[in-house]
């Protein structure tokens, strides 16, 4: 049995098989998702900021450029803040722009936190931009954004 048959698949046949299988996979994975509407993310953002426009910067959202699997994507967020009683970051909300549920998680900090830093893992339905919205103790908002490619694996997907 150690001899193996290796056939060169005819290109047309190859495309047909590949295409059909890929389509099936795509249907399967999309079937698992409810909806994914970027408008939800905007709406959530507006609700949280009560219409105020968050300033970009001072929020560092670190995620892999390419996620090996969307089910478990590591995330680190750091808000540049002295974290004193007078001046601290009150909360950070992680928002997905193309997940079925835009609100992923929120963390409420206190000056005791020492740093406005948190690390966890999130689910991502597809390639999308992720936002980290920080609310500062003076009521202002800051936002950091990053884009993560969620790959459709050959055998991981």
């Amino acid at each position: 049995m150690s001899k193996v048959r290796i056939d060169i698949v005819d290109r047309r046949e190859f495309l047909v098989i590949g295409g059909a299988a890929a389509a099936t996979l795509a249907a399967l994975s999309s079937g698992a998702l409810a909806k994914a509407d970027p408008a939800d993310a905007e709406a959530l953002l507006n609700e949280l900021t009560k219409g105020a426009k968050p300033t970009e910067g001072k929020v560092k959202l670190e995620m892999p450029e390419i996620a090996e699997n969307g089910a478990t994507v590591p995330l680190k967020v750091t808000v540049d803040s002295p974290m004193t009683e007078q001046d601290y970051c009150k909360s950070v909300t992680i928002i997905a722009t193309k997940n079925p549920v835009a609100h992923i998680c929120n963390f409420e900090f206190t000056p005791d936190s020492g740093k406005a830093w948190v690390s966890n893992r999130i689910r991502m339905a597809k390639t999308q931009e992720v936002w980290a919205l920080a609310q500062m103790s003076d009521g202002s908002f800051r936002i950091g954004k990053t884009t993560v490619k969620v790959t459709i694996g050959g055998c991981g997907g």
């Binding site: 992680i94 079925p100 609100h103 998680c105 409420e108 900090f109 936190s113």
Partner: peptide, 14 residues
Amino acid sequence: KTFLKGNWDTGVSA
């Protein structure tokens, strides 16, 4: 004394 609170949704991994 609570120093950190997390409000999580379904987007947090298992």
